[in-house]
């Protein structure tokens, strides 16, 4: 399901510009959406999920214009959505909550609902807790319920907003693997500020900054934004004022700094191989 976004603008009441003339094409497969807090990611995702109306511009998903009711409903029938701050009804069990969402998604057959709910509870390792009320679930367990509800209707478009927040490292890895497996014929839009999640799952990505598209391309191209700009420096003194410190690790009596700077920040600084995180930070630095 291809997503075509053209000159998309969203201005909230009070004149806050969350999106400012965004143009973006998202092809089928896994696609990362990176950006700092307040970059406009959640606003974009809420527009794609049909929860917000854009101020101007167009969005076509699988050929459907989401500005029309028919288009929005057509998209929502094939949409799996995991919001950033997922809430649940604490007085329902996990199975009941999923059943309710499945009904709202139009899965009317009780047999189909039971089968799918069973399958996805298994996928997110909640089968043992399926009949417990959600008020007793931990943050990570609730996140897994959220993932299960997003997958219930076998979505062709899966939009996940900060999906690994609250998950422990093992769960994060499992969820990333699951997302990658799901991609195949689907479009999976992964919005996050955790660069590692994108690095491990996406080939293509976009970076938003202040409501605008700061970058679009593949992971290698974003990494190359930091080519010849990453340095390491071990020193007993403070970090050099020139350049942005991206990591600081105590080492012996001093500190080993990793920095991004256009030129060597210190005569003793050594060049280092950039990572995706370096590329992202270098891009953000350039944009300032």
């Amino acid at each position: 399901m291809r997503i075509e976004i053209s000159r998309l603008t969203k201005t909230y009441r009070g004149g806050v510009h969350a999106l400012d003339g965004l143009d973006l094409d998202v092809p089928t497969g896994m696609y990362g959406l990176l950006g700092s807090n307040g970059a406009g990611k959640t606003t974009l995702i809420r527009i794609l999920a049909g929860l917000l109306k854009p101020t101007s511009g167009t969005v076509h998903i699988g050929g459907h214009d989401i500005a029309t009711t028919a288009g929005r409903l057509a998209v929502q029938r094939t949409l799996g959505y995991l919001p950033q701050d997922l809430g649940v009804y604490p007085d329902l069990t996990a199975r009941q909550f999923l059943d309710y969402i499945a009904l709202l998604k139009g899965i009317d057959s009780r047999t189909t609902r039971r089968r799918r709910i069973g399958e996805f509870l298994e996928v997110v390792a909640l089968t043992q807790d399926a009949d417990r009320r959600l008020k007793g679930f931990s943050g990570g367990m609730l996140r897994r319920v959220g993932i299960a509800q997003a997958l219930l209707a076998d979505p062709r478009l899966l939009i996940v907003d900060e999906p690994t927040t609250g998950l422990d490292p093992e769960e994060r890895i499992r969820f990333r693997t699951l997302l990658s497996q799901l991609a195949g014929e689907r479009t999976v839009l992964l919005s996050t500020h955790i660069v590692e999640d994108v690095a491990q799952t996406c080939r293509l990505l976009a970076v938003l900054a202040k409501g605008r598209l700061a970058f679009t391309g593949n992971v290698g191209e974003l990494v190359s934004q930091a080519d010849h700009r990453v340095w390491t420096l071990t020193t007993p003194g403070p970090a050099p004022s020139h350049g942005r410190v991206v990591a600081a690790v105590p080492e012996g009596t001093g500190m080993r700094y990793r920095l991004i700077a256009p030129t060597a920040p210190d005569p003793y600084a050594r060049p280092a191989e950039p990572t995706l995180e370096d590329g992202y930070l270098a891009l953000m630095e350039t944009g300032r």
Partner: peptide, 13 residues
């Protein structure tokens, strides 16, 4: 208040 409205609104109902 519970934060469930986003998930509900994203359904075709």
């Amino acid at each position: 208040r519970l934060g469930v409205v986003g998930v509900l609104d994203a359904t075709p109902t």
